[in-house]
Nucleic acid binder design. Structure first.
Lengths: 209, 209
DNA sequence: CGGTAATTACACTCATGAGTTACATCATTC
DNA sequence: GAATGATGTAACTCATGAGTGTAATTACCG
């Protein structure tokens, strides 16, 4: 019946306990949403997963939708780091593409990242849907731009960057749909296989690695 | 207020009206499920889409779950035709792979096919979930086997058929997630781009088409 | 025309789950 | 040891939507 002890992932002191616990709620929510779907998950279940009361959850979030949106926000925050790295213009384009794909693969393999691939947007308010689409659009756009640049530079073969990007993110987004099992394929292994498929699929006939 | 006229896609005569109308219900359901999600779609909405009463829907199906499952069954029936074609052992392996991918792309671009990619399984009974997974497994297995064979024959480079298959179906399954818009990219165009990406990604350095 | 199949109208039951109310309790810290 | 923050208890409201019951109505077929 101990009352504390469900919120600290890193050793934060009391002032940040609140944030840590809110985050614990989001992560528990993400896990359940991914496993059972958003609509099929009740707040009682999230509470139970944390050995907490529904009432307590409302002490940290305003609504169920809040949890879902929080998952997305927090998740996209993490993805931001990967996007930053791939932004580095001193690196060769191909490296940047690989960086982005590898990072996205790792990201979508986690609970928060997977939420974007597993939960449809319909459950959010229109404004929040729009905000999300905005963010997703930025990631999409970054890969598209990289591929377009690669084509210009001649290190990638001519193709439609929009469709190729869709194919790549499709493959990546689908990972949590089949790999959330008892003994999942290690995320790094997936990344390697996907990368060799996609990189070779993108390069011109000349310069095969 | 005319009472007929919502069920005939092909010119079937009265004896098959029942089947045709049941199918109309399934297809209307599929469309709405794909657009708004299964849980977010009420039977009243499906009825409204057909200018029908909820009560009438229950004249053709037993439950909401029945509709969803019916979509899957009917959809998989269509996919079966594609799978048959790709079964033809007199064809070169690469052709069979292409046949399968092209067919799947067309299939997943339709309402019934898209349902598998858009609606999570949780809403079905465990038995039906199992049955579905069975069917999906067969498709998956077919592509895996083809790729494995291609590797053996040396027309494909060595790789993990399981992961490559996951990547390909992931890319394809994601199509309805972004292409269900006012003016979608023609399904054939997608297939071409995806095929050149994947085929080139799969072939050994030697024999580039 | 008469009978049967299809469809409507519509009121109803029932379960579920989000979010709330009001209060009690424990913990912490000054 | 009182004030404040955090959590529990438990009953409650409320909307939604699946599925049903029943009787009336319309279309169709022989």
């Amino acid at each position: 019946m101990s009352k504390q002890g469900w919120g600290q992932g890193s050793g934060d002191q009391p002032p940040n306990q609140r944030a840590a616990k809110r985050r614990a709620v989001l992560e528990a929510g993400a896990r359940l949403f991914n496993d059972q779907g958003y609509e099929q998950t009740s707040l009682e279940e999230i509470a139970a997963a944390l050995s907490i009361t529904k009432r307590t959850i409302y002490y940290y979030v305003d609504s169920k939708e809040d949890i879902l949106f929080g998952c997305h926000q927090l998740g996209l925050e993490f993805l931001g780091e990967t996007m930053q790295q791939a932004q580095d213009e001193t690196l060769p384009v191909l490296d940047r593409v690989q960086l982005l794909i590898r990072g996205y693969c790792a990201w979508v393999s986690g609970d928060l990242g997977a939420t974007i691939a597993m939960v449809r947007e319909h459950s959010l308010s229109p404004e929040r849907q729009a905000e999300l689409r905005e963010s997703k659009g930025r990631v999409d756009h970054q890969l598209r731009a990289l591929i377009a640049q690669g084509i210009e530079e001649g290190v990638l073969r001519p193709c439609d960057p929009r469709l190729v990007t869709a194919a790549i993110f499709g493959a990546l987004n689908w990972i949590p749909h089949w790999n959330r099992v008892a003994s999942p394929v290690p995320q790094e292994e997936i990344a390697e296989q996907y990368l060799s498929l996609m990189m070779q699929g993108l390069m011109p006939d000349s310069q095969q690695a």
